[in-house]
């Protein structure tokens, strides 16, 4: 498990760096797919196989296909080489370094909370993670579930309106 964790974290961080640094957006998109697969591997290590499947189906499948399709629809030679200014790089690097230092300090110094829930690894393995998630989605989280469906519906209409020729 420990070795797998390091392999996945290396792949995830490397491909995330590649997404940000590559000039060609199509290369970035393919590295992003690799990153999503590594994160799905993390979910499998953490005993959430259903989330790993969702990650691969929805992110690496649906969303990245949409991104690649849009890159294809646009003229690739005109969107390929959009560089960034030096001052932008310096400011961006500083901001993200400060953010990282802040988060890591918080993680290291923060008080560790004791486990409070009842869903231990053994229980999740016994019932099955898909069944637990399904039960919670249709009982305790019923209202957010319905609102999510409305959100998706609105997003369909919005995407159609934006991509229409005249609006």
């Amino acid at each position: 498990m420990e070795a797998l964790f390091y392999v996945f974290s290396f792949i995830a961080i490397f491909s995330a760096l590649m997404v940000v640094t590559m000039r060609n957006p199509l290369t970035s998109a393919l590295y992003l797919v690799l990153c999503f697969f590594a994160l799905a591997g993390f979910y499998v290590i953490l005993d959430m196989q259903f989330l790993a499947a969702m990650q691969i189906l929805v992110y690496a499948g649906a969303i990245m296909v949409l991104v690649v399709l849009v890159i294809m629809l646009l003229n690739i030679s005109r969107i390929k080489n959009i560089g960034s200014d030096l001052h932008q790089k310096i400011i961006g690097g500083l901001i993200s370094l400060i953010l990282f230092a802040e988060v890591v300090l918080y993680i290291i110094n923060g008080a560790q909370k004791k486990p409070t829930g009842i869903f231990t690894r053994a229980l999740i393995k016994k019932i099955g993670n898909t069944q637990i998630i399904g039960e919670f989605l249709f009982t305790e989280y019923m209202l957010p579930f319905e609102i999510a469906s409305i959100l998706l519906f609105v997003a369909i209409i919005g995407a159609y309106l934006f991509a229409k020729k005249k609006y």
Binding site: I13, V19, V20, I79, Q88, G93, S96, L99, F100, V103
Partner: peptide, 16 residues
Amino acid sequence: SIIFCIGALGVIVRKN
């Protein structure tokens, strides 16, 4: 947090 900061870097730096 490393991945989050790389993402934030991309949002700030990239123009595409």
